[in-house]
Amino acid sequence: MAQRRLVFAAAALIVGPLQFAAANIVAQLAWTTPYSLAHNNISDLGNVHCQVSEDGVPRYICSPLHELLNTSAVLCGVLLIVGLALSSVLWRRSWVGALACVLLALGGSGFVLAGLAPADVDLNLHVVGAFLIMGVGNLGLALSAFARRGNPFAELRVITVAATAIAVVATWTHFSHSYGPFGMGGSERFALFTTQLWFVLLGANLLRAEVRQSSRPPHPSVDHR
């Protein structure tokens, strides 16, 4: 039963980010006006109304598939929370891991909030969602680098440290409006999708660990006669 839970956890952690990335691509391709990865942020894809936005970078926003993007964001958040909950037995091995799990789950809740409250419908709630994703969630990513040795999280320590560095710097540049050469949209994507890629790698590592465990031969019984 425990093994099945971890397989489901791995699947949720992989499918959630991948389907959200796919929804981003499909929603971008549906635009009749040019969509820029540097000058348009992810939230533009979920905006309900067609209008000119003046926040930071003036641009015309009209996303025909905003419902797809927002539904995908909610689904991503739900799957991340489910994946973390099902794998919580691994995170609870230390208080740092348990705290990291909670913060990452809060980041998942940010996807749900951002999807339910598009930026042009309720900007305040949408910003709270974005902060949970890129602020709180990325803090959880940083703490997961301190996972104990001997579990699937520790095996990703080097990748986790690298992903944390990229995500934290990108989050800082995005919220401070110091976008740099990647622009407003580029900095947001590095802050968000770096952690999402880490989730996919984490899920794949969990799945590999479970396959490896199930393929081990059973321990021979000991005859005490």
Rank of each mutant, 00 (worst) to 15 (best):
L90R: 08
H224P: 02
R92F: 11
S53C: 09
P152C: 13
A209K: 04
P58R: 04
Q19M: 10
G97S: 14
E155S: 05
T173Y: 02
S187A: 10
Y179Q: 08
V112T: 06
A130S: 07
F175V: 07
R59N: 04
A100I: 13
G56W: 10
F193P: 03
N124W: 07
A204S: 04
S176C: 09
F131T: 04
G140E: 12
G137A: 15
R148L: 14
G77A: 11
R92W: 11
N124C: 05
A167C: 03
G46Y: 10
Q3G: 03
D122E: 12
V158T: 01
A30K: 10
L90M: 12
Q3W: 01
L75A: 14
L103V: 07
S94P: 00
A73I: 12
I61L: 09
G83M: 12
F131C: 03
A165C: 06
H126W: 08
N70M: 15
L79G: 14
H224K: 03
D55Y: 15
Q213E: 07
P152G: 14
F153N: 00
C101Y: 01
L141S: 02
L103C: 06
V74W: 14
L201W: 13
N40Q: 05
V102I: 10
I81W: 14
A27P: 12
R212G: 03
I166S: 01
V127S: 07
M1S: 05
I14S: 02
S187I: 02
S87C: 12
L197M: 13
V222S: 01
I14G: 01
Y60N: 08
T171Y: 15
G140Q: 09
I133L: 13
F190H: 02
E155H: 03
V74Q: 15
I61A: 09
V102A: 06
P34H: 08
L80A: 11
F199T: 06
G16W: 01
G97H: 12
M184N: 03
A73T: 08
L132T: 03
V121C: 03
V26C: 09
T195W: 14
R149V: 04
I133T: 07
V74C: 15
R59M: 08
V211W: 09
F153M: 04
V158K: 01
A163I: 00
G183R: 01
A21I: 15
A114S: 15
L141R: 00
T173V: 06
V82D: 04
F182P: 13
S88Q: 12
L90D: 09
D55P: 02
E67K: 07
N41G: 15
D120M: 07
F153I: 02
D223A: 09
H39G: 10
G185Y: 06
L37V: 13
W31K: 06
W95D: 04
L201S: 12
S88C: 13
W95N: 03
I133M: 12
V158C: 01
V15P: 09
V48L: 09
I166P: 00
R59E: 07
